[in-house]
């Protein structure tokens, strides 16, 4: 990847992480861990890959993203705000009564392509969008991000069958493999491994990559575009809570908000990192 672009993406990802912390802190609830683990892939998609139009969020030929792991809405919202779909100020009222930003993605929010949050459902909707694009000979791509715990849902595999059966090569599913779910390690709660083999057995092309390396992300998404007649899954090995030292790989940050002291520390860490990147 071009060094300038890479630096820009790293800066943007850091700002998106700051937005996640801002949102979850002000909401006094939410899911920071899994939001931080997908910050880099969202940055890559919205700032280097997808054709989206903040001034025309409903442009019919745009690329789409369905956040199947909808509980990590803070990451999507922070990304959309950073991209200019709505003011960053909105992040401060995340989950508040009367606010635009709901606890889970809502289709009425500019830039949000589908309401989601009930696990396993987003990938099916992404299949429908991809099929629709195929029918209309449209060239848009559909991306959907799933949690690794989420793929325990049976519906995911119904959708996996469907996507392969209808050769949805305009669909890319991303599995955020941070290895943790609410009750503990994915392998202890209900193992989903081996993930790539499962998708391959369902007729998908599987790619594995480091979730926090933009070179690796670029390589993976470019490879995805070369695949014809079958859907692609990109399994991203990620770190839950990535970017905030005390949240990393700690399952207790799956669904809890930082207090003021923790918020200050998280912001300090991310701001220092941002200065380092920009300096």
């Amino acid at each position: 990847m071009d060094a300038t672009l890479k630096k820009q993406l790293e800066v943007t990802a850091c700002k998106i992480r700051l937005g996640i912390i801002e949102g979850v802190f002000n909401a006094k609830s939410g899911h920071p861990g899994g939001s931080l683990s997908i910050a880099d892939v969202l940055t890559y998609l919205y700032f280097a890959k997808m054709n989206v139009y903040p001034d025309k969020p409903d442009e019919p030929h745009r690329d789409r993203l369905v956040l199947s792991k909808g509980h990590t809405a803070p990451a999507l919202y922070s990304t959309l705000a950073e991209k200019g779909f709505f003011p960053k100020q909105e992040l401060k009222s995340l989950r508040h009564i009367g606010a635009m930003l709901q606890g889970h993605p809502c289709i009425n929010i500019p830039g949000v392509d589908m309401s989601s949050g009930s696990l396993g459902q987003g990938i099916s909707v992404a299949c429908g969008m991809a099929l629709s694009g195929k029918i209309s000979n449209d060239t848009y791509k559909v991306y959907t991000i799933l949690g690794d715990g989420e793929i325990e849902e049976g519906q995911v595999w119904e959708a996996a069958m469907f996507a392969a059966h209808y050769k949805l090569d305009n669909l890319v599913a991303i599995v955020d493999n941070n290895g943790l779910q609410i009750d503990g390690k994915v392998e202890d709660v209900m193992s989903v491994y081996p993930i790539a083999d499962k998708f391959e057995a369902f007729g998908w092309h599987a790619i594995s990559a480091d979730a926090h390396d933009f070179d690796a992300l670029e390589k993976a998404f470019n490879e995805a575009e070369t695949i014809a007649n079958q859907p692609v899954v990109i399994i991203l090995k990620s770190v839950k809570g990535k970017g905030v030292s005390f949240m990393e790989n700690n399952v207790s940050w799956h669904g809890s908000a930082p207090n003021k002291e923790q918020y200050d520390q998280a912001v300090a860490e991310l701001t220092a990192h941002l200065k380092e990147l920009e300096g």
Binding site: P60, G120, L131, S132, I135, Q155, E158, A159, F162, H165
Partner: peptide, 24 residues
């Protein structure tokens, strides 16, 4: 489009079709 014996997925697929302007 036959979705096979997978009604949950079928509802989601239809939602995706509708979200892109078709009437499923």
């Amino acid at each position: 489009f036959d979705c096979g014996i997978a009604e949950s997925n079928m509802m989601g697929v239809a939602a995706g079709m509708a979200a892109t302007g078709k009437i499923p």
